[in-house]
């Protein structure tokens, strides 16, 4: 009996406690920098698209909401002809970001992407592509990859010595 009265009293004391609700639209909650929200495609420090259209993200995606078509520019650089993410299916698991070898695809701390029509949630490449490197500022995939493309011959990448001419090693 006494415990009932004590319970009622303790609950009453909550009238004087601070409320923990975050008044959302006026008061934004803190989101960690690695929060998994809206997905973007980032660019190299020199402004080129990072995505090499390797399809790894599309394969890793558990719900299959990434669609892209690979193509090559005149320098032999692969890039996606189109790149489409259906956010009405995406579960924001972040597997695409983990799978990506070039840090191109990244999840950002933004979840306010509500729409009235489902088809507006299908984002095309121009909606996804941003004008910066995102979470990895200095990274430039083509400067690290060993492959040769137009404008960059073998041995011209960063931290790379010119290839040894094997014929000079002959006795």
């Amino acid at each position: 009996m006494l415990s009932i009265l004590r319970t009622i009293w303790y609950v009453f004391l909550h009238s004087f406690q601070k409320r923990i609700t975050v008044q959302y639209p006026e008061q934004k909650p803190y989101l960690a920098p690695r929060y998994r929200g809206r997905i973007i495609l980032s660019r190299d420090p020199d402004g080129g698209e990072r995505c090499v259209a390797c399809n790894l993200c599309a394969v890793a995606c558990p719900v299959g909401c990434i669609a892209l078509q690979a193509t090559e520019d005149k320098n032999g650089r692969r890039y996606p002809e189109f790149f489409r993410i259906n956010f009405s299916r995406c579960i924001f698991c972040g597997y695409c970001e983990e799978a990506c070898p070039t840090y191109a695809i990244q999840l950002t701390p933004d979840f306010e992407i509500g729409e009235f029509h489902r088809k507006n949630l299908v984002y095309e490449k121009e909606d996804l592509l941003i004008n910066g490197p995102g979470k990895h500022p200095g990274y430039n995939f083509w400067q690290i990859a060993g492959v040769k493309i137009g404008g960059k011959d073998k041995g011209e990448a960063a931290h790379e010595a010119a290839p040894v001419d094997v014929h000079t090693l002959l006795p």
Binding site: F12, S15, Q17, R19, I20
Partner: peptide
């Protein structure tokens, strides 16, 4: 109820 559960 919200007041006593620290809500609004």
């Amino acid at each position: 109820l919200a007041l006593w559960q620290d809500r609004y």
